Amino acid sequence: MTTDTGKPGSNTSLAQRARAIRRNALLMGEVQGQGYIGQALGAADLLAVSYFHAMDYRPGDPEWEGRDRFYLSIGHYAIALYAAMIEAGILPEDEIATYGMDDSRLPMSGMASYTPGMEITGGSLGHGLGIAVGAAMGLKRKGSDRFVYNLLSDGELGEGSTWEAVMSATQWKLDNLIAIVDFNNQQADGPTRDALAQTPEAPKWEAFGWHAQEVDGNDMDALVQAFDTARTLKDAKPRVIICNTRMCKGIPFLEEREITHFVRVEPEEWQKALAIHDANKPA
C-alpha cells in the first residue's frame, strides 16, 4: 500500500489516512444529525492523497508562504476538508464536537475568515476555479514554484464561469494549477448526467488545452499515479484530474440510498455507520 511521503507520521498508509478522514466526517455528521456526509465519504481518498502525498504545507503555520494551496470551490464540502485538516494536524481534533454550532470555527459551509487552513470561502458554485486561476497567476508573478489545487464538483461543470476560468488558465499557461473534479454523479435535484448533458469529461478539457486524466477516485494507487503525473508534467499547461467517486463510500446502507446529496441519519444509525467503518480497518 502506498504510504505518506515526508509528512508527519510517514509510516501511516494513505488508506489509513483516508479511513481517519471518513471517521472524522462521520463524527461531525453525528453532531448535527445530518450533512454532506456522502461527499465527505466519497472524497476521502482524493483528500488523503492531496494532503499526505502531494502537497507541501506546515500544519502549525497555515499561512506559510511556501505552501501549496488547496482551494475548496464547493463550500458545502467543508465537512470533508475539515476532516482532512484535522487528520493533518492543521485543526485540533477536539473541535469535531463544535461542528456547525454557533461561534464554531467549523461552520457547515466553508469560510476562510473562520477556519485556519481554509484558503477561500466556497460557493456559490462555479467561482472557485476562477479564484484559483488568479492565485496561480499571482504565484507565478512572485516567482513561486508552488501548486494551486482546486477541488470542484461535477455540478460546477454546468456553470459558465467554470469554463471561462478553464480558458483563462490555458491562455496564461498555468502549469502550477491542478483542478480536481469530484465526479460523484449526484446533485441536489438528482444525477448530474440528468441535470445537464454531460459528455465524456477528459476529451472536453483536452479540447480546451488542459492535460486531463480520468481515474477511479476511490482507487488509491490510481490517484497517486494521477497526482504524480500532474505534478511532474513538463508541458506548460494546466492539469485536471477527474475523479469518479462513490457517494457514502464505505458505508453500504448509506451507499444504497437513492438520494445522498444531503444525508439525514437517525441517531442510532450514526453508531451503526461508525461500527461498520471501524470494522473495516486497512492494513
Rank of each mutant, 00 (worst) to 15 (best):
G155R: 03
I79Y: 05
Y149T: 03
G130D: 12
A54F: 03
D45T: 00
L41K: 10
G160W: 06
Y114G: 00
R146F: 02
D45P: 03
A88H: 07
A112N: 06
E65H: 01
N176H: 08
E63S: 14
A132R: 05
P62I: 03
I79Q: 13
I74G: 03
G100Y: 00
G155D: 08
E63L: 14
Y114L: 15
R146H: 10
Y71F: 15
Y99K: 10
K173M: 11
S113N: 05
T98F: 03
E93G: 00
V181R: 09
G42N: 06
Y77Q: 13
I120A: 09
Y149F: 15
M137Q: 11
S144H: 13
A165P: 10
Y71T: 12
E87Y: 00
N150G: 02
F70G: 03
R146A: 14
S113E: 08
R69W: 08
L81T: 02
L174H: 02
V148K: 04
M167H: 04
E95R: 13
E93R: 14
A43H: 02
M118N: 12
F52Y: 04
A84K: 03
Y71M: 15
A43G: 01
Y82K: 14
T170R: 15
G75D: 05
N150S: 13
D56K: 13
D61Q: 10
A78Y: 00
L41T: 10
L125Y: 06
P62R: 04
L129N: 05
L139C: 02
I79E: 08
P116H: 04
L129T: 08
E93L: 11
Y57A: 13
A88R: 05
V148A: 04
V133T: 08
